[in-house]
Amino acid sequence: MKNHHRLGVALFLIPAMAVFAVYFIYPVGFLVYTSVMKWDSITPMEFVGLDNYRRLLGDGVFHKSLLNTLAWGAAAVFLHIPMAIVVAMILSRKIAGWKFFRTVFFIPNLISTLALAMLWQFIYNGEFGLLNELLRSVGLGAWQRNWLGEMHTAFPALIGQWIFYIGFFMVIFMSFISTIDPALYESAQIDGATGLKQEWHITLPLLKPAVSIAVLLALTDTLKNFEAPFLLTNGGPVNQTMVLSLHIYNKMNAYQYGYANTLAVMLIAIGAVMVLLVRLLFREKDV
């Protein structure tokens, strides 16, 4: 490449690089820098070396929030996305009313998390909740409980309020399926493959790029997860539903900005590892 071409390319890259530096490199650099400080955001910072990182080892709430974040990610990968794939496959067969069902599945994505959280508060409420009413009406009154307030049910209930909102990924998968050449299905049909076999041997393998994107998006969403735990349980009871973002928020509110930023560095590191793993996993399988 000639020198003036290189200069041209460099100049064109400047705006993007400037935005990247201002909105990513600087904040991350600042996080890393302040993660080794004791800082309440008001008085001057005090260098504490790796004390904040050592504190992570003994921070039971961090451990719990990390486990919950990973469990949420696992639920996204092994339940949420497979459900979206199955529904996308069924609706892509253009069954009767498929457009209606596509809209129904997608609608929750258009509603704010706040409104959905309010709705689920009413469903799970231990005093007048719809779920308890339903259980009572079918003779399962003994199963009634304060779903978001008990140690063993709070986290599953929190996952449960989100797991069925598959509309976003369903639409991604449906658009991918629509690009698959119909001739593949026709020839499979001639060879005697049933509908299920066609999905298994044709649709699923060809969906791999979409699955890769979906897994990546779902995992990064999991790491950023804040609104639902904040609004529905505030991390309780006894931190059973604590997630990393909420733990960071709490530490900031307690004026422990140095430690909050240490947690944020961990969040970024975990995100980076997740992205690498997903890319590695799907690259290995792509031939």
Binding site: G149, M151, G235, G236, P237, V238, N250, N253, Y255, Q256
Partner: peptide, 20 residues
């Protein structure tokens, strides 16, 4: 302090549920 204010609900739910 704010840190105690934030901890209070978590500790209280543990107390009431018999965890603490």
């Amino acid at each position: 302090s704010s840190a105690v204010k934030i901890e209070f609900p978590a500790a209280l739910s543990g107390l009431v549920l018999g965890e603490y």
